[in-house]
Amino acid sequence: MLQEISLFPVLLSLKVASFSTLAALVLGVGAARLLARKRSAASSVLDVLCTLPMVLPPTVLGYYLILLFGRSGLLGPAMQSMGLQLMFSWQGAVTAATVVIFPLVYRSARAALEQVDVSLEQAARTLGAPEWKVFFYVTLPLASRSILSGAMLAFARGMGEFGATLMIAGNIPGKTKTLALAIYDAFQAGNDELASMLVLVTSAICATILVAAERLLGRRHA
């Protein structure tokens, strides 16, 4: 029975979650930096847009992504001419997962950045530090632990992404079949042993990440 279990879905899910967490970290922290401490109407609209993927059904997100990156989508043809094919590829799965987990990173990063004492940033400015330096030397290091724990939650969520991934990347064995998709397949095919095996693996990985994230946050409060 063990030979039946291919490690591929596990490794693919880890790869997709890693890349999408990195992408969401860069984008989410960037967006948080732009919107932190802003109270204008425009920034409220952007804040809603950045949070929306958290509440929308993943299939809706998948649909939007197809409108953007599909073969006849807005950006699809341009990207195809550059040799980038998101549809039915692991890069597509990364894109889908990035959009789904982006709000988790964005929201924890925004809260973390806003928690940093303003007078520390002001002190850096009066000492002559330009804005990029204030951010990378003062604000970001002080917010990093909360941001990192948000990123770990995002990673755990990305491990199990199903809906949007299915719509963008499909369910191609050995190519885009991630853990969540493999579980669904195994269950549909009546292969309960394989399904429960994969379910246990997924649960163990996600639980480990959550414990680590909790530890990371807990140390700060200690």
């Binding site: 007078s119 520390l120 009066t126 002080l142």
Partner: peptide, 27 residues
């Protein structure tokens, strides 16, 4: 302009020496 903040605003993640060196490195 030099500014001495009421709560001092020393960077908590830097040692005293690094805090002072930041004033010279900042530019």
């Amino acid at each position: 302009v030099g500014y001495l903040f009421q709560q001092y605003a020393l960077f908590p993640h830097m040692s005293l020496r690094e805090n002072l060196a930041f004033a010279l490195r900042s530019r």
